[in-house]
Design a protein around this nucleic acid. Structure first.
Lengths: 95, 95
DNA sequence: AAAGTATTTAGATGTTTATCTAAATATTAC
DNA sequence: GTAATATTTAGATAAACATCTAAATACTTT
């Protein structure tokens, strides 16, 4: 959970998540949206992947990244808790 | 907004928010919950305060800290956005 | 006004992190 | 199998950050 919050603390990584909410993208397509080198973006993608916020699948020479909203539910629940609400987001696990 | 996410990236600061969700506390009472020095906790409180996540009021020789959930709404809305939902948390401002 | 309690400020230190360049790995096409 | 494209790994560097000790500030009580 701490890793998730740390992953979200970087603006580049949050923008990557914003991009992926619209469509799945390859590592290169993601990198094209930034003025950083591909290795740097690759590092950010790896950070996000380790937390489970995104997942990837190899398609030929490309690696396609996509959002995994499951983890978001956990974070949201923490927020709901702090905000005194008893509302909880229902995750895929307990559907 | 970036400052808020960075503030939330530290486990000590998140625990402080958890403590304050139950009751307002003085700086010293907050520090008592941790095994760190008071200056360190004071620094964390200042970080949280700068983002607006908490607020403080001086009461005699004590400084009483309390949650400010307004800022939480903004963060929650970002999450809602990534999760494709059009649900938005209504802040005090636009009540 | 002196002593005691509460909190913050200042300055130092070690660790973590974001970024880069160069090189390595993997896939496709000729 | 060599060249071209896509992505990651490795290693280096500079900036940011969490923490500490020592000192300063502020309030209360006697």
């Amino acid at each position: 959970m701490n890793e998730v919050f740390k992953a979200l603390a970087d603006p580049t990584r949050r923008k990557i998540l914003d991009l992926l909410k619209n469509q799945d993208l390859s590592a290169g397509e993601i990198a094209d949206h930034f003025e950083m080198t591909k290795p740097t973006i690759s590092h950010h993608l790896n950070t996000l992947k380790k937390t489970g916020l995104i997942q990837d699948v190899k398609q030929g020479q490309f690696v396609i990244y996509s959002l995994n909203t499951t983890v978001f539910h956990d974070v949201m629940n923490w927020f709901m808790g702090v905000m005194q609400s008893d509302y909880k987001v229902k995750g895929e696990n307990e559907k």
